[in-house]
Simulated assay, not measured.
Amino acid sequence: MGSNEFVTLFFLVAAVLIFLQLRSVLGRRTGNEKPPFDPYSRRDSTKLPEGEDGKVVTLPKREVNDDGNRFAVADSYAPAGTALNSGLREVLKADQNFNPREFLDGAKMAYEMIVSAFAEGNRQTLSSLLSPEVMEGFDQAIRTRESRGEKVVSTFVGIEKADIVQAGVRDNEEHVTVRITCQLIQATYDKDGKVIDGDADVVSEVNDIWTFARDVRSRDPNWKLIATEADQ
């Protein structure tokens, strides 16, 4: 096997491992499904609607009283009596496998993958992580960029902070909203190679509020991004 074939095989295996890890951390549960709603182009408002579908092991439902251990994870993340704690308890009632801290780890991984894929124009990666409506907005932005001959060069430095700020269940769909602060180097070049946005030599702070959702009846463990908002 030549060196080029070995490198290609290495990155293919790495990509599969990252995808499997993302599937395992970003949620788990059971059932059937409906499509979500909210376009990327509307970053000034966050909608919280429908879900996705899929295939994984169906987990049995069981009733647990409010004093059961299941809600300890909500209490450990947000003080009892707060709106966030109540929202997390709603999610835990519907999804006995939900864990706020594990979800947050998966959300951070998804955030980096989505930001990087958008800069690269990688529609395949984006379509696996976004709701159809959000994907439509991302795709439109990429097509506009491509039609102008523009190119985005982006380096993801890291996530400084990530917190769950809202959670709940609506119409059999669990949704969790995350506020993320990250460091990013990004510049957009026109067809002549001139920087028209951003700065290739400066690390910028980016603040976003993203909402992820999934149908609680679905066997698909994956969550998808259904709403984006710039945190001013």
Results as ranks from 00 to 15, higher is better:
D53Q: 15
L126E: 06
R101G: 06
M109G: 02
M113N: 07
G137P: 04
N32E: 09
E63F: 14
E33F: 03
A74N: 02
A80M: 06
P132D: 15
A72T: 08
S116Q: 15
R143V: 11
F19T: 04
E50I: 06
K108P: 04
L26T: 06
M135K: 10
A94I: 00
A141R: 05
T30Y: 04
L126S: 09
E102S: 05
V56M: 12
T155A: 10
E90W: 05
A80H: 05
K47T: 09
K151H: 12
K151P: 08
L130R: 10
V57D: 10
N65L: 08
L126M: 14
G81I: 00
E63P: 02
K61Q: 12
R43Q: 13
E150T: 04
P39R: 10
A80C: 01
S154V: 02
E136S: 15
L104R: 01
F98Y: 14
N32T: 14
Q96I: 11
R123C: 04
A110Y: 00
T155E: 14
Y77T: 05
P100F: 01
N122I: 08
S24T: 07
P100H: 01
P100N: 03
S24N: 09
R123S: 07
D105W: 00
Q96G: 14
L59R: 15
F103V: 01
K108Q: 13
S45R: 11
N99C: 08
V25A: 06
L26S: 07
E90R: 07
L104N: 01
I18M: 00
P79V: 07
E63W: 08
L88Y: 00
E120W: 11
P132C: 11
R29M: 03
D139F: 07
E112D: 04
P79Y: 05
F19I: 02
S24E: 13
G27C: 05
G68E: 10
T30G: 03
V134M: 14
R143C: 06
I114N: 00
V25I: 13
S147A: 13
F71E: 06
G51E: 10
T46L: 15
D38L: 06
L88D: 00
G31A: 14
V57G: 08
E90D: 15
T82D: 10
N97S: 10
Q96C: 07
S116W: 01
D95F: 03
A107D: 00
K55M: 12
F98G: 00
P60R: 05
V73N: 05
V73T: 13
R29E: 12
S147Y: 03
P100C: 03
E133W: 07
K108N: 12
F71T: 05
R70K: 08
N122P: 10
A107F: 01
S131V: 03
L22E: 03
T144C: 09
S41F: 08
V64S: 06
A74H: 02
V25D: 10
G31H: 08
V152L: 15
N69K: 12
G54H: 12
S41E: 11
M135L: 15
L84A: 02
N122M: 08
S24W: 12
R89K: 15
F71C: 08
S76Q: 09
D139S: 15
Q21E: 11
D53S: 11
A110C: 07
V73D: 06
K47F: 11
L26R: 05
A83F: 04
V25M: 14
L59I: 10
P39W: 04
E90K: 04
N65Q: 09
